[in-house]
Design a protein around this nucleic acid. Sequence first.
RNA 1: GCCCCAGUAGCUCAAAGGACAGAGCAGCGGCCUUCUAAGCCGUCGGUUGCAGGUUCGAGUCCUGCCUGGGGCGCCA
Length: 615
Amino acid sequence: MLDALQRQVLDQIRAYLAEHDIPEPREWRFAPVPGEGVWGFGLPLFPVAAAEVRAKGLRVPVPQRAQELAADLARQIQTLDGVQRAEAVRGYLNVYVDPHRFGQQVVDTILQQGPEFGRAPRRGQRLMVEFSQPNTHKAFHVGHLRNVILGESVCRILDAAGYDVVRANYLGDIGWHVIKWLWNYLTYHAGEEPPAEDKTVWISQLYIEANRRLKENPELEPQVRALFRRWEEQDPELVALWEKTRQWSIEGFEEIYRLLDVHFDRVYYESEMEEPGKALVEELIAKGIARDLRPEGPVIVPLDELLGLDKPTYRTYVVLRSDGTSLYATKDLPLAIQKFREYPDLVRSIYVIDVRQSLYMKQIFKTLELMGYEWADRLYHLAYELVLLPANLVREVVEVDLEAEAPAQEDSPKPQAKAASSREGAVLLDQLFREARQRARAIVDEKNPALPEEAKERVAWQVALGALKYSMLARENTRFFTFDWDQALDFNGNASPTIQYAHVRCASLLRKAGGVPEESVRPAHDLHPAEVALISRLAEFPGVVLRAAEEFKPLHITNAAFALARAFNDFYDRCPVLAADDPATRDFRLRLVAATKQALANALHLLGIEAPEVM
RNA sequence: GCCCCAGUAGCUCAAAGGACAGAGCAGCGGCCUUCUAAGCCGUCGGUUGCAGGUUCGAGUCCUGCCUGGGGCGCCA
């Protein structure tokens, strides 16, 4: 928001450097100026000084030269309109701006832009984000949650950064797990229908049951294999059942997506990729990219060999089983092609998939490159680490999903035997949601007993879901998330309720004031340090959004949102608004509060978290 | 054997090669006849896994180790 001023400062610096024959650094990056109650930006001059010393062979220590340059520049920049003060401090050029003048600008901008604040102009560039990718006929549990929450937030951030985002889902609607499920259904549950509620639970129970039966009676396996053959032959009756049961799963997923406030623009089905995939494998063989070892072996793509790499890098992978049945790789290749056929203008095709598939993703991308697809370099694997579970939860997950992602070792990282963790089936989503809601509800009852019942329920859900989402987003994508009730549902400190609460406080103030003064106000009072800090946090926000989009990191948004909430709470504590000393101060502060409320809401929106009016 | 990720305060985590490594939780001590205390203030807490190197400057980059996790031709 200080962009224009920063550009002017840079122009001055550039002119100075040119005049003194000093090489320009590759990149300029301003940092906030340190100190309480001041606002501005600083620039380290060490890189410039180092470059000059090197270029001219000076015998001056770099820090000393940096300080000299900073001092020289400070004198010039001091005179720029909008600069309150410029000074050289230990090699840094610090430029302070007038918080009265720019504070007014920041507040005006936010109030004028409203929900658009923090959003960049449209770029006219489209990208696709594929995420969630659940398997039908299986459970949806806490392990799958991180993907959905991360994917959704990244989409919102990219959209805010000006991209047109296509949200894609890819359903694992066929494979051994589906056939096992159908076998169990046909043999033991023929004709049954899932309950209207909890479809997913019912479906996952049948899946668990199928696995249990096969584990206890391995002699039944030929039945499953026979069923798989019927599927391969596209037995109409079986296909009809598959379609019907798949729909049950899909309805269950849609319910979960609705609860999470997630939606998709395009859904691909794994089953649709099978035939194109097999055809593609033949093409790969014909092109000499794949090697057909059938019937003794599978069809492989020997990437390292094709690329002439001695060191194992891309290695070799299998694209088709020796019996001609398909694998993930068989289907991922045509899927990538299909995406670009539908959306040839994608500037990026992003896959939100856990980090264990990094090598596999590289293999797929490289194969497409070898096939000559010019868009292969636009494919991007957005990797995230797994959700770990405390040891006493792990067994339950394995129970739920016998092909679980969770490491099933008793000594998995950080086992925590907390009472809250020992609940039965705590990892299933509906139970997770129920527990979260209950915990939030207990706090709402305690904090705000006067709230009407309906509002309490709504707030409890907003808080519960927000806490869950925030706890998963407020960490580096590449770090493990160890699920823990007390931590995921911690409502204090660096957590979403703190941010929501700040939003509520803003709302409350504005309600009591009876609205926001409409006219722009230039603060005339001495701005309190807490006010200046709050304003500077507000001004940072649009830049944070762009950075979060560049790096696909909602973490930057959580950091900014929490810092903003803290700055507001500090302001709230120290600066009376309704009872301000004079009407002008009150008006400015009310507008500042309204701007803060808007910024908090916009930040929460990017995280997929609701901003309540009351709590 | 090769590759990827992580290692920062007691715990969970931040920190775009830049100013004194910061938050939260936990602990201790304060602040509610004044806009919601889901808050604020203070305090305690650090050899950033180890050893070198590059740089004016390294938690961040490079090399080598250590520890933990993950991946590596018919799993998904």
